[in-house]
C-alpha cells in the first residue's frame, strides 16, 4: 500500500513530463520546418545569383530554353497585378466594412459577416475557373482585345480573393474606434457620412492600412488563379495598354516550370531564385503589416 501511494504521484508527474515534452517538440518543430524550408530555398536558389550574369538576371527576357533568365518581367508582372488588384479591392473592401459596421441594421450584419467568411473559403482554382470562363470572355468581347487573359482579368479575380481578408480586418479596425468619437461629431451636427469620412475612417487609418497589407500579401502569393487567367506570357508590363495584355507572375512561373526542369540545372536554380525574391517581397509586406499593428497598439495605449 505504502509503495503504491508513493509511486502514483510519480507516474503522474512523469506522464505530465512526457506530454509537455511532446508538445514542446511539436511546437519547436514548426519553427524548425520553416527554417529548413528557408535554408533549402537559399541553398537551391543562391547558385542562380552567382552562376548567371547580373545583366541576364535583371534582363527583360525570360526564355529558359535559350538560357535567358531575365526575372524583371516576372517581378513586374507580380507587382503590377497585385497593385491593380489592391486598387480595385480597397474602395470596395473599405466601403463594405463601413456598410457592415456603421450603416447596416443588425440583422443584415448577421447575414453579411458569415457570407464574407464563406467567400474566403472558396478554393482558388474555382475562382480561377470562374475568371477563365466568365471574366476573360467578357473582357475580350467588351474591349475587343486579342485575348481575355490579361493583367486586368487576373487583378479582378485577385481582388475578389483579397476582399474577405480586407473586409474583416477593416471592419475590426472600425470596431475599435470608440463610440464617443462618433457621438462628439454627431453632437456637433455632423451628418452620418461626415462622421464616417472625417472622424471614423481617419481614426481607423492604421487598421485599414493593415487590411491593405494583408490583402496584398494574399494577392502576391496567389498562384493557381493567376496561372489560369493571366495568359502566362513573360512580357514587360509597360504602359497602360499592358493592363489588357497577358502577363506572367513569379508564382505562376515556378508552378508551371518546376515540374519539367532538370534537377541542378541553371533553370532549376533560377526558379528557386525567383522563390527567394518572392519570399523577400512577402516578408517586407508582412513586416509593414506588423508595423501597422504595432502603431495601432501604441495609439490604443494613449487613450
Amino acid at each position: 500500500m505504502l509503495n503504491n501511494k508513493s509511486s502514483a504521484p510519480k507516474s503522474i508527474s512523469s506522464f505530465e513530463f512526457a506530454i509537455e515534452a511532446i508538445i514542446r517538440v511539436l511546437g519547436f518543430s514548426t519553427i524548425g520546418f520553416v527554417l529548413l524550408i528557408f535554408l533549402f530555398l537559399l541553398k537551391e536558389g543562391v547558385p542562380f545569383f552567382y552562376k548567371t550574369d547580373l545583366i541576364n538576371i535583371f534582363g527583360t527576357r525570360w526564355y529558359p530554353t535559350f538560357d535567358l533568365f531575365g526575372t524583371l518581367p516576372l517581378i513586374l508582372g507580380s507587382v503590377a497585378i497585385t497593385v491593380v488588384a489592391v486598387i480595385m479591392a480597397l474602395p470596395m473592401g473599405v466601403a463594405t466594412a463601413v456598410f457592415i459596421r456603421e450603416i447596416a441594421p443588425g440583422w443584415v450584419r448577421e447575414i453579411l459577416k458569415p457570407m464574407i467568411e464563406t467567400l474566403a473559403g472558396i478554393p482558388s482554382v474555382v475562382i480561377g475557373f470562374f475568371g477563365m470562363t466568365v471574366i476573360a470572355p467578357m473582357v475580350r468581347e467588351t474591349l475587343g482585345v486579342a485575348t481575355g487573359l490579361t493583367i486586368f482579368t487576373g487583378a479582378v479575380t485577385l481582388a475578389y480573393m483579397a476582399l474577405p481578408t480586407m473586409i474583416s480586418v477593416a471592419e475590426d479596425a472600425l470596431d475599435t474606434v470608440p463610440k464617443n468619437y462618433r457621438d462628439a461629431a454627431l453632437a456637433m451636427g455632423a451628418t452620418k457620412w461626415q462622421t464616417i469620412r472625417h472622424v471614423v475612417l481617419p481614426a481607423a487609418r492604421s487598421g485599414i492600412s493593415m487590411a491593405v497589407m494583408l490583402g496584398m500579401g494574399r494577392a502576391i502569393g496567389e498562384t493557381m488563379t493567376v496561372m489560369m487567367v493571366t495568359g502566362n506570357a513573360a512580357r514587360m508590363p509597360l504602359g497602360l495598354d499592358a493592363l489588357f495584355k497577358p502577363i506572367r507572375t513569379m508564382t505562376a512561373t515556378i508552378a508551371a516550370e518546376m515540374g519539367e526542369v532538370a534537377g541542378g540545372s541553371i533553370h532549376y536554380h533560377a526558379l528557386f531564385g525567383i522563390g527567394i525574391v518572392l519570399f523577400v517581397l512577402t516578408f517586407f509586406i508582412n513586416l509593414a503589416a506588423a508595423r501597422a499593428i504595432f502603431q495601432k497598439r501604441r495609439k490604443g495605449g494613449l487613450r
Binding site: D183, A184, H198
Partner: peptide, 23 residues
C-alpha cells in the same frame, strides 16, 4: 454637447476645433 469623458478626436488641436465649422 460636451460629454462626461473628454473625447477630442485623435487629430490636431486645430482640426478638433475647426471640425464643426469645416463640416
Amino acid at each position: 454637447m460636451v460629454f462626461q469623458r473628454p473625447n477630442p478626436f485623435p487629430q490636431s488641436i486645430f482640426n478638433n476645433v475647426s471640425f464643426g465649422p469645416r463640416m
